[in-house]
Amino acid sequence: MQTVKMVISGAVNAGKTEFIKAISEIEVVSTERRATDDTKMIKKETTVAMDFGRIAIADDLVLHLFGTPGQKRFDFMWEILSEGMLGLVILVDSTRPETFRETNRIIDFFVSYRDTSYVIAANKQDRPNAWSPDELRLALRQPPHVKVLPCVASDRDSVKNVLLELLYVIQERSEE
């Protein structure tokens, strides 16, 4: 059985758990604990270890989805999770510009050293005060070739679209 891995990252409350829950075939293994630091100001429960989802591709192939913990003190987990990943989805809460700086730090971490295939998912596009994907591209200073996609992480079709767009990026860079 071959397994491949995709990583879903983003700042606290970007929607990582929701994103994985929307598409995973198994109940998401989420190690939620009561937040102990300033993240509790944002939400009561936050991901302190990781989320894990799974999609069976065929009898011999499984796709694993890993959500990274959002808080800075779990940075060390990012290194471990990123080993051997097929691609990366960076989720951004489009309604909270105060998280854009942290999002850039995450992008920098995953992309600086590695030849990582990634897309940015502009989450919460259903909210009235959401920044559009074009505005997010400028705010995050992403070059034109990086896909910044509209997303609503609670919507399965929207999540499917983000994963497919990431797979097209990976496909372009894959070998025959």
């Binding site: 598409i23 999609i55 069976a56 065929a58 080993e83 051997g84 499917k160 070998e175």
Partner: peptide, 23 residues
């Protein structure tokens, strides 16, 4: 180095694409 990570096979990526499309 991580930057030299081996590229994945197109056939494998296509299989995942087809599966996600069908979900």
């Amino acid at each position: 180095s991580a930057a030299d990570a081996p590229r994945v096979k197109k056939s494998l990526v296509n299989r995942i694409i087809n599966r996600i499309k069908g979900m």
